[in-house]
């Protein structure tokens, strides 16, 4: 067993842009692999979450499965990070909070332009949507926040290094962005 810190990552109601930005650290990912062990993440395709030191949560909380996965991450991870704009404040998906859920579903699946075979999907395997999209800190306790849509690769690199070294997180001005 390695005693390197274990990291898990997940995308809830996000676009995987934050994970793409993580991959944008380019060859530094080899350094990262030297520093940490990856647990459940879309990069490893491990399906079940183990006990981890660090969890990165991309995306807000939009459906029942997001709530379950987020709570599981909170149980398993010592330190949990809201990773990117949607996790931090709901982001673009939370713009649906302006509308009633029923109206969103009707527009998407019944009345919208180009809809064929109209009907709201109701397969029991499809997670039920919440009435509103929430930032992750409204559902579980969050230890750190890294804003950005997405956070730049450099911001992610600064953040991970300072966190792993136990230093306070200080992003240089050009790495702190909400957009």
């Amino acid at each position: 067993m390695s005693d390197k810190p274990r990291i898990a990552t997940v995308s809830l109601c996000g676009c995987f842009g934050c994970h793409m930005s993580l991959l944008d650290i380019d060859e530094r990912i080899l350094d990262l692999v030297g520093l940490v062990t990856f647990d459940r993440t879309p990069l490893t395709d491990i399906k079940r979450l183990g006990d981890c030191d660090l969890g990165l949560i991309e995306g807000g909380v939009a459906n029942a499965e997001n709530v379950e996965v987020l709570r599981e991450f909170r149980r398993r991870c010592k330190v949990l990070v809201a990773f990117g704009a949607c996790a931090v404040n709901g982001g673009v998906p939370a713009m649906r909070n302006q509308f009633r859920l029923a109206d969103c579903l009707r527009e998407s699946y019944c009345d919208g332009i180009g809809v064929h075979n109209p009907g709201i999907p109701n397969d029991p395997e499809i997670p039920l949507l919440l009435n509103q999209v929430h930032p992750v800190h409204e559902v579980v306790e969050i230890d750190h926040f890294l804003p950005g849509c997405p956070p730049s690769a450099d911001a992610i690199w600064t953040f991970l290094n300072e966190l792993l070294e136990g230093k306070p997180i200080r992003l240089p001005y050009d790495q702190l962005h909400y957009d």
Binding site: A82, G90, I142, H144, L176
Partner: peptide, 12 residues
């Protein structure tokens, strides 16, 4: 001011 997150519950 170094604000990283909105901290409070959103009113939406």
């Amino acid at each position: 001011t170094g604000m990283l997150a909105p901290h409070f519950t959103h009113f939406f």
